[in-house]
Design a binder for these strands. Sequence first.
RNA 1: GUGAUUGUAGCUCAGUUGGUUAGAGCGCCAGGUUGUGGCCCUGGAGGUCGGGGGUUCGAGUCCCCUCAUUCACCCCA
Length: 422
Amino acid sequence: MTHYRAVKGTRDIFPEEVVIWQYLEGVVRRVASLYGFHEIRTPVFEYTDLFQRSIGATTDIVGKEMFTFQPDPRSRSITLRPEMTAGVMRAFLQKGMASSAPVHKLFYISDLFRKERPQAGRQRQFCQFGAELIGASSPPAVAEVISYMMHVFRDLGLKGLKLRINTLGDLEDRHRYREALKAYFSPYRDELDEPSRERLEKNPLRILDSKHPRVREIVAGAPLLTEYVRPEARAEFERVLGYLDERSIDFVEDPLLVRGLDYYCHTAFEVQCDELGAQDALGGGGRYDGLARELGSRQDLPAVGFAVGMERLLMAVEKQGLLSSLTALGPEVYVVLQDAALVDHALGLCGRLRDAGITAEMDLAGRSMKAQMREANKTGARHALFVGSEEVQKGVYGLKNLSSSSQESLDLEAILRQLGNH
RNA sequence: GUGAUUGUAGCUCAGUUGGUUAGAGCGCCAGGUUGUGGCCCUGGAGGUCGGGGGUUCGAGUCCCCUCAUUCACCCCA
């Protein structure tokens, strides 16, 4: 054990596991193209104020979880992105994408950074896939985004996920509700836990999803957001639910669901998975119509999006035993040499095979034949190709099928012809 | 940031009331006769017992500190 370890909250992904990641990413990309979402990649860091402005200065993310630094004393502070939406919107506005088409559908698979204490399902560097639909946030647009997300889960074979959904109303609804909550909670002030007490002033909505037992009791009697959402907003929300029904997407309405980021309004949703332990949110999202203006856009840009934790997705898929058939493919041919003097010739053979599109490997450590055969077996190679002085002389090699153990002598042309067909 | 947990070979773990050269399984490497794998057999390499200090004739085993891990709170993906 060296004393160099991966930094707290980060981890390495080795080849065996990379196979799983590639599979997940593949599904995400394939389904994205089904819906017409196009991939975007933005820088891993942004100017700090972008996040302060978009996510909200009072949120935990901005308050204590960002990796922030200054490249040098005179330059602007920059921050490792703690989420993707802000950066995507910034890129969108910077390029003026709004003027090239009214609606854009973007998706991403990107690494994010948050300085939290690591735990099951939570790391300091983690990956999310997500989508942002910018330019519309009508019920069909919201349904489109949720459908994409659920489609990915469905294609992976995930079962028993719980989609919780709620409407936060528009800014005015929220404002009125906020005041009502303040009025309701104030008498209980002394019974609230420390964090909830702080939120009472800054962001009372967040008290609603507290896990503190006593706070939950108090919350049970609190006025519901539903009562403050005006009929028009409610009607829109109903349309969203209608579309979900039509697409057979199961959901549960949850009036207590409030998402943590300031920019959400109207529809908000979250997907839970029991198999994940304490951090059971697989993903979440919602509408953020006000964000573009918040970031300086002169026009309103309605938008909806979501993000799903890839590590959590991987855990869920693993827990549900959905990865059994995933294994890395071994080479078509493992070249086995009888004597170290023949490396040059073997190397040449490997080259010919590879040029013909046939995967080929050989021993690079000068090991015995027995060791080479064991290695061939271990790599999962389908054939062993024997190279000895006799073979080299005649130009005919032994090609052994490693699963049937049958072997035949063939010249290079015949080998290429036989293996090239697959 | 708070609480708890664990820390012995690459991995999973044993290690007896503190007592001679710290063990197993798996993995790895090499052999099992003359140019050929999977099973099996034999042998081998590999450990500052997380680190530091203390108690003791003697500590992997007890005490303190420290670092790291894991889980939970908080929050979120």
